[in-house]
Design a protein around this nucleic acid. Structure first.
Length: 435
RNA sequence: GGAGGGAUGACAGAGCGGCCGAAUGUACCGGUCUUGAAAACCGGCGUGGGCUUGCCCACCGUGGGUUCAAAUCCCACUCCCUCCGCCA
C-alpha cells in the first residue's frame, strides 16, 4: 500500500512516479477525493460520539444523585444524538471501505533507479556471466548434444515423468523420479546450507489466510493466479515470500534485531491462468515447483545492502553450478505490483535455447510493511515501518532444466556440478537407465 | 469431531455496566541519595487516527448485538490449555 499521507502532501510527485509504471493520475485523484470526503465525515462522526459520551456521563451523575427526571431527559437527548452518530459512522465506514479498496489496488511507487519502459522488452540487461568469463573466455558455444530439450533428456534418463505427473494432477504438474528427484533435493539442500550462515532457516506452512495474502500484495490483485481452498478459506502460497512477510505481521520490532534475515524452501503453486500453450513445455512453466527464498526485514538504511546481499547469493549459486546467466533491471512497466525495484536473474538453457527466469530480487520499500503493519522502534522511541526485500535463490524446476541440458555429454549422460556431490550420495553422473 | 477452561498493556495480573485506556507488581527509562553500584524513594512508561497542537476519537482475541452509556451483558467465530475420540 502506498503512503496516503505522502500522496496527500505531494500528489504531483507521486503521480509523476506512478505514471512511469502506467498508472493514470485519475486513480490517485479518486483516492484523494475519497480521502477528503472520509476525513470530513470522520470529524462529524467523532464530534457526535464525543457528545454522546459527554451526555452519558451526565446521565450517570444524575442517577447517582437520584435525579431521575434529569437522567431521563438527558438519556432521551443522547438517544437522538446517538442516532445521528450511528448514521454518520455508517457513512464514514462506507467511504473508508471504498478508499481502502482503491488504495489496495494501487501498485507500489517505482524507485527512481528503475529504468523507464512499458513491458519486458524494455528491461535493461546489466551483465552476463558464464564459466571462464573472468579468464577472458568468450560466451559459450554449446555442442549439438547440449541442444536437446530437458523433457527429452528427462525421458531418456528416466528422471522426469511429465506424463505421470499429468495423470496425477493434470498437465504442468511435473513428476521427478530417481536421480532426477534426488537432484532436486540436492539443489535445495545445497542452497539452504549456503544461506544458513546469515539467514535463519524456516519451514513455513504452504497455505495461507486471505489476510496473509493481502500483506504481500498478492491479494486482491492476483486472486486468479493462485489456487484457493475455498472451503477452508485458504490459499496455496505462490512463494515463501508470503508466509515470511507475515511472520512478524502486526509487530513492533526492536531496531537492534534488524535486519531479520530468513530463508525458506517451499513448494510454490501458480495457476498460470491464460498461460497455456506457448512457453509451457516441460519445466518452462509449471503449476508447482520448489524454490528457496531469501528474505529480510530491515531499516530503510539497511535495505540497499540487504537487497545486494540476496542478489550476490543468488549469483554465487548460479556460478557454483556453472550455469550461464544474465541480470535484468526490470523497467517500471514490468515491475511486480508490490515492488519498487527488481533485478531478475535469467539462466541460459541451451537445449531449449532460451533464457529462463530463475530469480527475482525485489525491494518493496515500506509497501508490504504498511499492509502487514510491521514496524520497528527507533532509538528516540518513535516507530517507523520496516522495509522488506526478498529474492529467490533459486527456483529449482528451471535450474534443473538448465542443468541437465548444459551438462549433457555426447553419450547422453549428465555430469553433475561438483558442489552437488555431497548431496547426491556419490552420484556424479546420471546414466540412461538400463533396466 | 465431543466436553470443559481461558484470551486485558513488554510480562504477570485485577477489573465484570458509568468516575476505566484501564489497579497492582515486575521489567524498562529519567531523577534523588551514593566514591560507584545495589537498595530505598520520586517521576515517566501502549498503538493508531483527526483537526483549530490542545483537545477529540478508536483499540481490553475478532465480528455483530443490547444500552443514554460496554473491557464489563448477549450471540457467533478464531486461537490457546485440559480431557475424550481419530490420526502420520
Amino acid at each position: 500500500m502506498i503512503d496516503l499521507v505522502q500522496l496527500r502532501r505531494e500528489p504531483d510527485v507521486v503521480k509523476a512516479a506512478m505514471a512511469r509504471r502506467g498508472v493514470s493520475s485519475g486513480a490517485m485523484d479518486a483516492v484523494l477525493a475519497l480521502d477528503l470526503q472520509h476525513r470530513g465525515l470522520l470529524q462529524e462522526a467523532e464530534r457526535l460520539r464525543a457528545e454522546v459520551k459527554f451526555l452519558s456521563r451526565l446521565v450517570g451523575e444524575a442517577r447517582r444523585e437520584k435525579d431521575v427526571a434529569t437522567a431521563e431527559q438527558l438519556a432521551a437527548k443522547s438517544r437522538v444524538v446517538g442516532e445521528e452518530e450511528r448514521q454518520a459512522t455508517e457513512a464514514t465506514a462506507r467511504v473508508e471501505t471504498l478508499l481502502r479498496a482503491q488504495l489496495l489496488a494501487l501498485p507500489n511507487v517505482p524507485s527512481p533507479d528503475a529504468p523507464d519502459g512499458v513491458d519486458e522488452k524494455d528491461n535493461v540487461e546489466l551483465r552476463r556471466w558464464w564459466v571462464g568469463m573472468d579468464e577472458g573466455r568468450a560466451f559459450p558455444t554449446y555442442e549439438p548434444f547440449q541442444r536437446v530439450a530437458h523433457w527429452d533428456i528427462g525421458l531418456e534418463l528416466g528422471i522426469l515423468d511429465l506424463e505421470t505427473g499429468a495423470k496425477i494432477a493434470g498437465s504442468m504438474f511435473p513428476l521427478f523420479r530417481g536421480d532426477g528427484a534426488r537432484l532436486l533435493r540436492a539443489l535445495g539442500s545445497y542452497a539452504l546450507d549456503q544461506h544458513c550462515d546469515a539467514y535463519e532457516e524456516i519451514r513455513p506452512p504452504s497455505f495461507a489466510l486471505t489476510e496473509t495474502m493481502m500483506a504481500t500484495g498478492h491479494l486482491p490483485k492476483s486472486a486468479d493466479d493462485m489456487y484457493a481452498i475455498e472451503r477452508d478459506g485458504l490459499w496455496a502460497i505462490p512463494t515463501a515470500e508470503v508466509p515470511l512477510t507475515s511472520m512478524h505481521r502486526g509487530q513492533i520490532l526492536d531496531e537492534s534485531s534488524l535486519p531479520i534475515r530468513l530463508t525458506a524452501q517451499t513448494a510454490c503453486f501458480r495457476r498460470e491462468a491464460g498461460a497455456a500453450g506457448r512457453d509451457t513445455r516441460g519445466l518452462l512453466r509449471v503449476h508447482e515447483f520448489d524454490k528457496v527464498e531469501l528474505f529480510a526485514y530491515c531499516t530503510p538504511d539497511q535495505a540497499e545492502a540487504a537487497h545486494a546481499d540476496i542478489l550476490r547469493r543468488a549469483e554465487r549459486l548460479l556460478q557454483a553450478l556453472g550455469l550461464t546467466y544474465r541480470l535484468l533491471d526490470l523497467c517500471c512497466g514490468d515491475l511486480g505490483t508490490s515492488s519498487a525495484r527488481t533485478i531478475d536473474l535469467d539462466v541460459f538453457s541451451p537445449g531449449v535455447d532460451r533464457w529462463l527466469e530463475v530469480s527475482s530480487v525485489s525491494w518493496f520499500r515500506d509497501f508490504q510493511a504498511r499492509r502487514a503493519n510491521v514496524r520497528y522502534r527507533k532509538d528516540d522511541g518513535t516507530t517507523a515501518l520496516v522495509h522488506t526485500v526478498n529474492g529467490s535463490a533459486l527456483a529449482w524446476a528451471r535450474i534443473w532444466a538448465a542443468l541437465v541440458e548444459t551438462y549433457r555429454h555426447a553419450d547422453g549422460s549428465v555430469h553433475l556440478p561438483e558442489v552437488l556431490a555431497p548431496y547426491m550420495g556419490g552420484v556424479a553422473t546420471i546414466l540412461p537407465r538400463t533396466s
